[in-house]
């Protein structure tokens, strides 16, 4: 366990109890009426879900930046999140056709199906680009990333289309609200759905660590050290698909975590991608848990959406990052 892991694990251990007690009502167990019930059935699942989603996004961001060899990369570049959102939006449309018994599951399952479809498309494209690169056509990583961006913008356009053609105003506001991710009113059900998928995704991303390190010196040097580009890309598609897809399925789109978190972790490590994935998972968990606790205690009439809150933090940070990089400080 490296220094960054210890720092962020301790931070998480500090934030978690605070997050459980904080909210519209400050809970003092044994004193507050129904205190234990609120803790066990409302706040604990929400906190656990925040940890799961943040961990997935943090690990995905670290892996993505390692793969693209670029500190400005974000797991969103693969287009998994927009594909999952498209699946979720489809569920608002298909609501009438879904048997009532499955109604509660339709949104997350369709979102997962969207993410799965995105992963399958990416895997197909990956097969093409890596074989071209081995044949000397070049541009493997850049080409693949562009393909991911196309997928993202296509899914985004289809989602926008579905919104403008919303069957009724209620559905419209539901969709828009849902797209700005949140953890409000989530239960253990979502935890059991997303937890295993995100855990599997992080485990898969861990397998890419050595290959990502090799990429530090560029694609040719990495291949000369035994990197198998096709295997790496497949692992990344599966790992990012699982972490991001499962996150979107239960919480909507939460941006900027994957971009920002590796930057918080990097100074505490030797800066190699392999040293970043684990600590970024922990730091992502801290960030999402802290942000979700803050939106919960802000004295607003309706709770600020978590996705909006994180983008509010993330966008200025991104700008600051760009300015610092211009000065060559990174």
């Amino acid at each position: 366990m490296n220094r960054a892991s210890i720092v962020f694990a301790s931070l998480l251990a500090l934030i978690l109890p605070l997050s459980l007690l904080a909210g519209r009502v400050w809970i003092v167990p044994d004193v507050t009426a129904n205190g234990w019930l609120i803790l066990a059935e409302l706040r604990l699942p929400r906190a656990v879900l925040a940890i799961i989603i943040g961990a997935g996004l943090g690990a995905a961001g670290a892996a993505m930046q390692g793969y693209l060899r670029n500190p400005l990369a974000d797991p969103g570049l693969f287009g998994i999140a927009p594909m999952a959102a498209l699946g979720a939006v489809a569920s608002f449309w298909l609501g009438a056709f879904i048997p009532p018994a499955f109604a509660a599951w339709s949104l997350p399952l369709l979102a997962l199906a969207g993410a799965g479809l995105g992963m399958a498309l990416l895997a197909l494209i990956a097969g093409r680009t890596t074989s071209d690169a081995a044949a000397g056509a070049g541009g493997g990583i850049a080409l693949f990333t562009l393909a991911g961006l196309m997928l993202a913008s296509l899914a985004g356009a289809l989602t926008a289309l579905a919104i403008t053609l919303a069957p009724n105003p209620f559905a419209l506001s539901e969709i828009v609200l849902w797209l700005n991710g949140a953890l409000t009113d989530r239960s253990w059900r979502e935890v059991w759905l997303a937890g295993p998928l995100v855990a599997a995704g992080i485990a898969v991303l861990m397998l890419t660590a050595r290959s990502l390190d090799a990429l530090t010196l560029g694609e040719d040097a990495a291949r000369s050290m035994g990197l198998n580009p096709a295997r790496l890309l497949l692992l990344l598609v599966v790992g990012i698909g699982l972490t991001v897809g499962a996150g979107v399925a239960v919480a909507g789109i939460i941006g900027f975590v994957g971009l920002v978190v590796p930057h918080l972790v990097r100074p505490l490590t030797d800066r190699l991608p392999s040293s970043l994935i684990g600590p970024s998972a922990l730091a992502g968990a801290c960030l999402v848990l802290a942000a979700d606790s803050i939106v919960r205690i802000l004295p607003l009439v309706t709770e600020l959406r978590l996705g909006i809150a994180l983008s509010l933090i993330g966008a200025p940070f991104f700008l600051w990052l760009l300015l610092r990089m211009r000065k060559g400080l990174l």
């Binding site: 060899r69 530090t216 010196l217 560029g218 040097a221 000369s224 190699l272 990174l330």
Partner: peptide, 10 residues
């Protein structure tokens, strides 16, 4: 490789 750029400041 020829003048490889080093992605991370290790």
């Amino acid at each position: 490789p020829q003048t490889p750029d080093i992605a991370w400041d290790v």
